[in-house]
Design a protein around this nucleic acid. Structure first.
Lengths: 206, 206
DNA sequence: GTCTATAACGGGATAGAC
DNA sequence: GTCTATCCCGTTATAGAC
């Protein structure tokens, strides 16, 4: 078999995304990966560690690219405050790009879900993975919106995270709710639509 | 004991909100409710039906109030398009109000989570509970934003749902990510902040 | 490194006494 | 309507052969 470990990661990614951390059993994962149950424990020791490995594999390069893009956009600004849309795009685009080439959307769905599974294993993910990136992007947003009070910025970032995570999650829920009224169009302009929406929200009023 | 059925509903609400549908076991629920396991099956037959009952109990009156407020705000508009902020407030305020009086926040957290648990039992909830309300509010938003293409409105509603659900879910994730940079201030202006943010996003550009 | 077999436990559901 | 006792299955995890 061509790399057991990776096949486990792929299956886990897909099933965690589809059924959540609690909802996806190791047995379902090994069946999907066509692998023996013991192999999971050999390579990852525990279910929780498997989730962290799944997240790590994709998120580490995404976060690197995010930081690189943010540096680019700050270099372009040359000392002046960066543009809100550019900062948002630096954060969101890497995740979307990865999702489109290579069909890694399961991972995006998973990340979207983890925002909702607060309180358990999910917190580990955010604490270990996002601390550094979040710090840098918050500073950039604060510079991009100098007139916005600190406290208000925090709330708006909270709303931004919500809209972003929900978009990562896919449109299934919205389609169920807006049934007959709306069906999602092509995916590409989605990124631009999202950024436009969020930037307007961040700049609201004065 | 003063009403077994209600104590089960209360415990289920809290634990489903805290650990998700899969993560909260019936045994944990009956322990919290100080009730026997068989009582759950007697009153609700199945775990899934219990979740639906939990949601129904609170969501039915909330959705009634939403429709009433929407009618009010359309009557005030007297034939002219309603104001975006008013439509948003008619939808969001009833959930917030219930959460603040009586301390029913567990239910809001639960609803927020269900948006993320797409694909399973959660879809049942949305299909059975939101169809009518969603239809009415979508029409109202379309009238409030006549210049916005139908397709674009759908996407923006999608973003609105995301920000709203995440706010219902509480700020734990955002606090973990923005640690040291932000701590949520008092809850009351939150509703106004959210509506201002969403309205600006809905009206973005032209 | 990969398998089989099994341990040890917790899950939802049910029968039947009271 | 409420309880005890139990069924039966799926769960994670591990021991030990190959």
């Amino acid at each position: 078999m061509i790399d057991t470990k990776q096949r486990i990661l792929d299956a886990a990614e897909r099933l965690f995304a589809e059924h959540g951390y609690e909802g996806a059993s190791l047995r379902a994962i090994i069946a999907d990966a066509k692998v023996n149950l013991a192999a999971v424990h050999y390579h990852f020791h525990t279910k929780e560690a498997l989730l962290l490995a799944v997240v790590d594999r994709r998120l580490a390069p995404i976060n690197e690219e995010r930081l690189k893009l943010l540096e680019d956009c700050e270099r372009n600004a040359a000392g002046r405050p960066p543009v809100v849309e550019d900062v948002l795009k630096a954060f969101i685009a890497p995740a979307f790009r990865l999702a489109q080439r290579g069909s890694h959307e399961p991972f995006m769905h998973l990340m979207g879900r983890l925002y909702g599974e607060s309180g358990e294993v999910a917190h580990l993910v955010f604490k270990t993975q996002f601390r550094k990136v979040a710090q840098r992007f918050l500073e950039a947003l604060a510079r991009a919106l100098p007139q916005l009070p600190h406290d208000e910025l925090g709330w708006r970032v909270h709303f931004v995270i919500g809209a972003m995570a929900h978009t990562f999650r896919g449109t299934a829920v919205t389609e169920a709710v807006t049934e007959g009224f709306w069906h999602p169009s092509e995916a590409h302009p989605m990124l631009e639509r999202l950024i436009k929406f969020l930037a307007a929200g961040l700049r609201a009023e004065g």
